[in-house]
Amino acid sequence: MESLENENVEILIRRYLDGMASVEETKRLGKWVESSEENKANYQQIKNLLDITDTRNSKMKIDVDNAFDQVLNRIEEKPQGRKWIKTMQKIAAILLIPTVIAGYFFGRTTERRMDAGKVAYNEIYASLGTRSKVLLADGSRVWLNSGSKLRYPDKFTEKNRVVTLTGEAYFEVQSDVSRPFIVQTQHLNVRATGTSFNVQAVESDPEVNVSLLSGKVSVNKSDEPDKNLAKLVNLIPNQRFTYDTKTGKSETFSGDLYEFIAWKDGRLVFRNKPMSEVVKKISQHYNVEIELRGKELQDYRYRATFEEESLNEILKLLKMSSPIKYSEVNRVRLADGTFSKRKIIISPL
């Protein structure tokens, strides 16, 4: 190591990097480093190692999320007026990532079995946090929401097309007037010919919803044998029918229904929705438990569109635009060796 042969150059480097070197020592080190490319390379390698193993450095706490927020704020132009909505919409429009596609692969657990007849039935289940898409034998398409199950035959009969749904699905039914398409759920049957509609019949939820986007459907009680008594409603496009299976009460809403079917496009759309509902949707979408604390938050109205942002990004956006803070509960290892479900706590600021 040239002129510093007798002296341990590494000690000198350490003194210099620790800020302990005298002016003389610094000059000596400088001269040694510039005297050859080899010395320079050696110096830089040692410096590299010492720099990153310096505990003042390596133990530094760095909040990446917070830093990213700050950088985002600086690169976003600041729009006029209702700033956060615009910001949100912009971010939502930009952040597109096809995680749903992964869901199509991982979410499917198809099971085939032979029934009494000759028709083979398939059952498809969209795992929690994923959505699945199914193409039926007649060309009808079905989007299955997280945690939902669809049972359908390999081939439909000549008389009708019957599928069974537990959970939520959006249907785009091929037009075939001679063979009605029937979605059976625990409490309601939805009968259609060629239409687009969404059925939400989640077992744990007493409310069943049918939203019609185009065409015509009739909704019937599934456990009422008398045809006339079973009939509940005929829907026209942009109507949403809500039926409370506990009380038997029902209502029909007319208006823009996109927010109810946006999930099929991987979007979460909230139009002036209370935080309690926002949180419910997010937890279904991402298969995560969310606890909402504080009464005032339950009714806090929220308006936003999310498009395949990660859960962390959504939480961050929520925090930016409403008076909340959130924390994540540490996951614990359960007796069977798996980990508890991810849990987030949202509370008022």
């Binding site: 080190l29 400088g30 001269k31 480093v33 390379a41 830089q44 410096k47 590299n48 190692l49």
Partner: peptide, 16 residues
Amino acid sequence: YITLLSENNTDQYILL
């Protein structure tokens, strides 16, 4: 010497 001694080889730098 400050610049000289502060510079790193960024192409071969090992990150923490």
